[in-house]
């Protein structure tokens, strides 16, 4: 995030860090115990799912603490229109974890917005571990920034003919103070407060550079994908859990028998 400030523990408990080969590459948000919402472009075709790690309950990427939980990915569901009508259109991914998140004051889910949410006069914030300068500097601390929403027609005027904005996209940036999302913030949530509850209205998706005030950050509009998100979370069962148990296979029984006999002989 450019122009962001340090975020305190417990302020954004749904924030997720997505790592690949041990390095932070994207953000995400917790929807439920098994599901994380992120951006589709964080999951390139060439990348292996086994190489991803997901961290929750963390603000400093170098300091996991007693509230930090680590997860492996069971499956990723990419929106069917990803890159279909736009180079970064349909930029939504549902990530199912192999095991369940344990909720606490430091780890909580975000709400989805109602489909008819009126976006005027909302206080909206974004968070992330993305680059903190256009030169590519990175930081380990989670940053936060309040970003005004920019009407889509106005955002389209700013981007001009070079980048077309789909109806499923929304824009936000603080042009006066140069606050904007940057590389590494992708997948992180844009959340707005309504009636004492935070709702996720956007997913960090793309933009032209980070420090050019005339090019706001572009987000996937969560309201546009609501039915797709709800459908998958309802129909997909939790992943099978591997429970520790005593095996009754003949081979293991034999091993146990031989071990007991060995102990008896020693005695």
């Amino acid at each position: 995030l450019l122009g962001g400030e340090f975020a305190r523990d417990r302020k954004w408990p749904w924030q997720v860090s997505l790592h690949y080969s041990g390095f932070h590459i994207c953000g995400g948000s917790i929807l439920s115990a098994y599901w994380v919402l992120s951006a589709a472009h964080c999951f390139d075709r060439g990348k292996k799912l086994e190489t991803y790690d997901i961290y929750v309950g963390i603000t400093n990427l170098e300091k996991a603490n007693r509230h930090t939980q680590w997860f492996e990915i069971y499956q990723v569901i990419i929106h069917p229109t990803f890159q279909m009508y736009h180079p970064i259109g349909g930029d939504v991914a549902l990530v199912q974890l192999k095991s369940a998140i344990v909720f606490s004051d430091f780890v909580l889910p975000i709400c989805l917005p109602p489909s008819d949410l009126y976006l005027i006069n909302l206080s909206c914030w974004t968070t992330g571990w993305g680059m903190i300068s256009p030169q590519g500097e990175t930081g380990n601390e989670l940053l936060e920034a309040q970003l005004p929403l920019i009407p889509r027609f106005q955002c389209q005027l700013l981007y001009g003919l070079s980048s077309y904005l789909l109806p499923e996209m929304l824009c936000a940036a603080d042009i006066k103070t140069m606050k904007n999302v940057c590389e590494g913030d992708s997948g992180s949530p844009l959340v707005c407060k309504q009636n004492q509850t935070w709702l996720q209205i956007g997913i960090v998706s793309w933009g032209r550079g980070c420090a050019q005030p005339l090019y706001p950050g572009v987000f996937a509009n969560v309201s546009y994908f609501l039915s797709w998100i709800r459908y998958h979370l309802q129909i997909i069962p939790n992943p099978p859990q591997i429970l520790p148990s005593l095996s009754s296979s003949p081979k293991n029984t034999l091993i146990i028998f031989v071990t007991i006999m060995g102990h008896l002989l020693v005695l």
């Binding site: 909720f103 606490s104 889910p109």
Partner: peptide, 27 residues
């Protein structure tokens, strides 16, 4: 385990935990 009050959020997908309500609220 969270001490949050459940079942208050129509838009929650998380079942028994209230969504969007951090313990630490910004001013």
């Amino acid at each position: 385990v969270s001490r949050r009050h459940p079942k208050s959020q129509a838009n929650s997908l998380s079942g028994d935990v209230a969504c969007g309500q951090p313990v630490l609220q910004g001013k």
